[in-house]
Write a protein that binds this DNA or RNA. Sequence first.
RNA 1: GGCCCCAUCGACUAGCGGUUAGGUCACCGCCCUUUCAAGGCGGCGGCAGGGGUUCGAAUCCCCUUGGGGUCACCA
Length: 479
Amino acid sequence: MVVTRIAPSPTGDPHVGTAYQALFNYVFAKQHGGKFIVRLEDTDRTRYNPTSERRILEMLEWLGLSPDESPTKGGPNGPYVQSQRLPIYRQHVQMLLEKGAAYRAFDTPEELAAAREAARRAGKQEQGYNRRYRDYPAQEAERRAAAGEPHVVRLKVPLEGKTVVHDLLRGSIEFENAALDDKVILKADGYPTYHLAAMVDDHLMGVTHVIRAEEWITSTPFHILILRAFGWEEPVWCHTPLLRNPDKSKLSKRKMDTSVDSYKAQGILPEALLNYLGTMAWSMPDGREIFSVQDMIKHFSLERISLGGPVFDLNKLKWMNGKYIREVLSLDDLAQRVKPFLERAGLSYPSETYLKQALEAMRARFETLQEFVDRSLYFFSEAYPMQEKALAKLREGAAFLPELREQLSGLPDLLPDHTEPLLKGFAEAKGVKAAAVMQPLRAALTGSLETPGMFDLLTLLGKERVLKRLERAMELVGE
RNA sequence: GGCCCCAUCGACUAGCGGUUAGGUCACCGCCCUUUCAAGGCGGCGGCAGGGGUUCGAAUCCCCUUGGGGUCACCA
């Protein structure tokens, strides 16, 4: 059975890179009827962020990438939080120690720094640990450890030969063992490092395919060496390209908004975000750009992943979100999605029908849910702002306002059947273009020059509000 | 800098020896039009460079260049 996983570390906001990896791992697992696991890698106590853990898990649910096994869901191979698995790691480190595949090292951080500095000055090309304790007498090491002397455990990396990474997308990647160093697998605080913990957990959890970002390529030989030290089989390695900032560097929150929570707050739809991420380094065989996770599961193949690092383009994400808003979601669905945003803005609506009509009228005019709120204030409140350009237009047509108000007030209702002939006739009678009447009216009713069509506006606002707004506008321009 | 990965329009990509190098975003123009959008139509724009291999290279190989990643008791 195919088993994939993502192993985020709870150090900050839920990252789009995590969502990206989750998508590929989820889709691949589902496509093969396998399992998708989420495991939290919280072995760095200094960077641990308590809310991050919960938010990462919530993000995955929001996206609909529900794991089969996770800290919240549990599963047969738990716990799924590494800090709760310390005994497992210690036990495995012990195994390596006994096999002679790892050794205790008593260097202090200061000593290590000094050694690195000395090596640098000597102009040494190879960096990394100088292996001072590699051949240290085992009994002596055990004695010092037993005495409580702080130390780490390092893997004994072969001094010769090479380790080959068989990457699904790149073929064989060779690394000279001589260029590797003896990495720490157990820290002085008793926590494992990523390398050890990830390999132990992947093995114990039955992970068959490690699909992760390419930043891990250079540590893969080390991971393979750990696996071999235990006598375990390797998973399939598949390193996907890194998402990039516009300047092509690795996507980072310093240069870009990388927080999924932030996109959610802006009103980016989960399916649009997922769809967009699905077009990063991957494409549908038939070239479709709008597709669901289900579509992706149907047509996905790891081999179609392209290797160039894709730039995360906010502009296209927003375009795609707009596409979902106007073409993919049903009106009912859209209404449900927008409600929390209205509520947060303190806006209410008279009825479900009214909300849907406003949405329908605005649909082609906003790309995020928050934009709907920002641009539709006049549908929900009398406290809408009067934009400068709109005010100017209002002044231009101020002279028409009283008569316009008079005529509109004479209508039984403001449905298009009545308003359309009235407004067109009005302009004609005045010998002006329709816009000369429409624009000032638009400004009066919405404070804006960018709105849905006039007849939709009049229908939606209704006679009472229209007349009131016209009166206020006349006061404003002193007519 | 060492090691490793990568390289098609500004961005995302299709292409896997024979195509007028296709699509999407962005940009520009036109149409539609009461505004703004949306939509339709059209345009601009690319195989990093140089060597090979081949009857034939965007496609295969090598070099150069460029970009990126990684070199922690972080993941």
